[in-house]
Design a protein around this nucleic acid. Sequence first.
DNA 1: CGATCTACCTGATGGC
DNA 2: TGCCATCAGGTAGATC
Length: 280
Amino acid sequence: MPELPEVETVRRDLERFVVGRTIEQVTLGRLRSVRRYDEPQDFVDALVGARITSTGRIGKYLLVNLGGHQSNLDEHTLVIHLRMSGQLLMPEGGANAPLLPHTHVRILFDDGQELRFVDPRTFGEMFVTDASLPELASLGPDAWTSLPDVKELRERMKGRRALKVALLDQAIVTGIGSIYADEICHRALVRPGRTVDRLRPIDIERLHAAITLVLGEAIELRGSTLGDGQYVGLDGEAGTYAERHRVHARTNYGCATCGGVVKTGVIAQRSAYWCPRCQK
DNA sequence: CGATCTACCTGATGGC
DNA sequence: TGCCATCAGGTAGATC
């Protein structure tokens, strides 16, 4: 599912393809994707005529900054969260490209390209907001661009029980989901179920290094596309980091480091994978 | 305060 | 082959 590396990959693609373009037309399919609006037309009106000035990301939230809007001089931002099954696509052929099922939002630019939001499970959403985003204010620092130092990371995790619960808590650091929590724990040689307060200083240091290492490698390979093929980049192509996963969803393949049996269990109501030989 | 559970959805999968 | 139950997981919100 889209976590920080996948959202960052989409952001970098968007940065290349839509910055400087002006939105000409917005077409809505299912309204659940714009559920924050009583009047979905308000979403359309906020976008049409706006020019994309830059892109940003905090955790798994994608930010598309808008300027040059005729009706409003304030800085506005199109916020996109892909949640479980959301995809952003810019198909070749623009508006004429065949429509995939579950295409809920189409944003047509002045150069003929079209950005499409496709989301079978409709957990994802889009909305336009001004610079004061109360929802984003509750997020911790971004795990890739603003990772706290070792000491602060330990402070922020204090009092949590399982390590994976802490890594998934977006108020501690934001951007890590189930896949990368498992991979980071493996790289740090620590089991995801370990109690945070019982970790040694060396464990926290390894964890800190593993966050940067794993996220960096995953971004380089354009993210993880699992067997369900749900995540793809703007170009529709899969990311290849899943081939480098060492434990996540590898019950049938074994640990990619030592070949040992991968154990699985439930932590924080989601499946967790770890290697009992590599991780203590 | 933190932990746990549920709701939100659809498509894929497995058992019978 | 068809039908039903189960699972996948990011986040908010309720509850313990």
